[in-house]
């Protein structure tokens, strides 16, 4: 579906990527207000590791570089420290725009495939929806095995003393492996998520219909 959506969006906006961002990306309507001062890029603690810092991302959007922006790993690097939002003289919600872009890229299937932040986000979500509560034991383990079985075993062995220490101080309950704690009304919680998914799907469907 995402491939279709991507083609539809390309077809719809042609080379007006700025307009596409404004309409489709959360907080995207702010991109035009950037005055290219570069304070966001300078303030980002991970700035040097980004492929394109926020200032550049905004400029690329205006220059219509759709593929490069959406397939970039840059916005996945954001740790939500909010330094850029605090410092932006034009008061752009830069952190939110980065997340909006990342989300949009994933939806279109353009996000880089092996992006660890994206993978972790998916693990976190899958873990959470099961019981309505995060099962830290399972989340930790799935994180160890995120990149394959042998690496998972190695990491698990390396972390064993930490795990035993947590067991001893009752910071971790081994019983979480089976079942685990959950929200009081699990049925209601799932119903709520289902409804949300329906709303979202309807929205996308509408978008596609418009395209």
């Amino acid at each position: 579906m995402s491939q279709d959506l991507n083609t539809a969006m390309v077809e719809k906006y042609r080379n007006d990527f700025l307009k596409e961002v404004e309409e489709k990306v959360e907080e995207g309507e702010w991109v035009r207000m950037c005055m290219q001062c570069g304070v966001c890029s300078g303030s980002c603690p991970l700035g040097p590791y980004w492929e394109h810092p926020p200032q550049e991302i905004f400029m690329m959007i205006r220059a219509g570089k759709r593929e490069e922006v959406l397939s970039s790993s840059s916005m996945w690097m954001c740790t939500s420290c909010y330094n850029c939002i605090v410092r932006c003289p034009r008061e752009l919600p830069i952190t939110h725009i980065m997340h909006g872009l990342a989300h949009y890229a994933k939806r279109l299937g353009l996000a880089p495939k092996e992006q660890p932040t994206m993978k972790f986000a998916q693990l976190f979500w899958d873990n959470l929806v099961k019981q309505g509560r995060v099962n830290e034991l399972k989340l930790g383990l799935s994180l160890y095995f995120m990149n394959g079985f042998s690496e998972g075993v190695k990491t698990a062995l390396k972390m064993a003393p930490v795990g035993l220490g947590m067991l001893k101080t009752k910071r971790m309950n081994p019983m979480e492996m089976v079942g685990g704690h959950k929200v009081k009304d699990l049925k209601g919680f799932h119903a709520m998520l289902k409804k949300a998914e329906e709303i979202e799907a309807a929205k996308i469907e509408k978008q596609e219909a418009e395209a």
Binding site: L18, M33, M35, M59
Partner: peptide, 14 residues
């Protein structure tokens, strides 16, 4: 005035 132009989607490019 500059901000108003940006709001009207005038593109500024360095």
């Amino acid at each position: 005035f500059y901000r108003s132009a940006q709001d009207k989607e005038v593109i500024f490019s360095k």
